[in-house]
């Protein structure tokens, strides 16, 4: 009998719940943004409010469920976009080499010379373009690591015998690149993408914690944390609920991504 692997089994349940909140949050908690200023911040366990309310009288649990969408959707697009860039530019860079390779490597070096948090904060903050501009900025910032990874994955593949046979058969460079090399590096790309979702989730929420990305009044975990900071003695649940949600989301996605990466790395033969 084969043992069920522990890591994915443990991560699946919280991830499915978070996914459910992200998709159906608006139905589960339809009145999440409803304010009740007269009520103010009541502590957890008050009538009708399992985790209490925030300063504007909004229900913490409902707000946290509704906030899942903005916490998850952006990061998924960031991971997809940056991996797409990584695949195209990394494959071209690794397979053709030459000055394209040099240029892309230098671009990656430049972006990696600074903390991602800092560039994201400065660029997204100064442009001030809202949620999707922030997503776009993070795609650009996340791409260098993906370009590097795909480049090294492709370079390991390029020396394998099947590529040589394809070349002998007279297939074109582009055909070999995208039809034969790319499918072989897809698993590792997927695992990396999962890890990027986790990092993007933490980065996106960090930006909204600092007051960027999501508009005021919109449900969002990072925004809840910065609002709830001053409520620590009145209703700590205002911080604990979204805080624990971010930590669990990041941890489970990271563990799952790492587990996949280790399995696929052995197969593809990338270090």
């Amino acid at each position: 009998m084969r043992r069920v692997p522990l890591t994915p089994a443990l991560c699946a349940i919280p991830l499915l719940i978070i996914l459910l909140f992200a998709i159906a949050g608006a139905w589960i908690a339809p009145n999440a943004t409803e304010q009740n200023v007269l009520l103010g911040a009541v502590p957890a366990g008050s009538e009708g409010h399992l985790f209490g309310t925030d300063l504007l009288g909004r229900d913490i649990l409902g707000l946290s469920i509704a906030g899942t969408r903005s916490a998850v959707v952006g990061p998924v697009f960031i991971a997809l976009g940056s991996m797409l860039l990584g695949m195209v530019l990394g494959t071209v860079s690794g397979y053709t080499g030459g000055w394209i390779d040099l240029l892309l490597t230098k671009y990656a070096d430049l972006l990696l010379a600074l903390p991602v948090t800092l560039i994201a904060l400065v660029v997204a903050g100064l442009i001030d373009g809202g949620y999707w501009v922030t997503v776009l900025v993070l795609v650009v910032l996340f791409s260098p690591t993906d370009i590097r990874l795909m480049r090294s994955a492709v370079m390991t593949q390029a020396t394998r015998p099947y590529i040589e046979s394809a070349r002998v058969l007279g297939l074109s460079r582009w055909r070999i690149m995208f039809r034969h090399v790319l499918p072989n590096v897809l698993p590792i790309a997927f695992a990396t993408m999962l890890l990027n979702v986790a990092f993007a989730l933490v980065a996106m929420s960090a930006l909204s914690f600092l007051g960027l990305g999501v508009g005021p009044g919109e449900p969002d975990w990072g925004r809840q944390l910065s609002d709830g900071r001053d409520l620590l003695s009145q209703n700590a649940a205002a911080v604990i609920v979204p805080g624990v949600l971010i930590i669990i989301a990041a941890a489970t996605i990271n563990l799952l991504g790492d587990w996949l990466q280790e399995r696929f790395n052995a197969e593809v033969g990338v270090r």
Binding site: A206, G243, A250, A251
Partner: peptide, 17 residues
């Protein structure tokens, strides 16, 4: 694996609490 990707602001606020 969990720590390197942990949101410092959330962890910090929980520690603060």
């Amino acid at each position: 694996i969990v720590g390197v990707g942990a949101p410092s602001y959330a962890v910090g606020l929980l520690l603060l609490y």
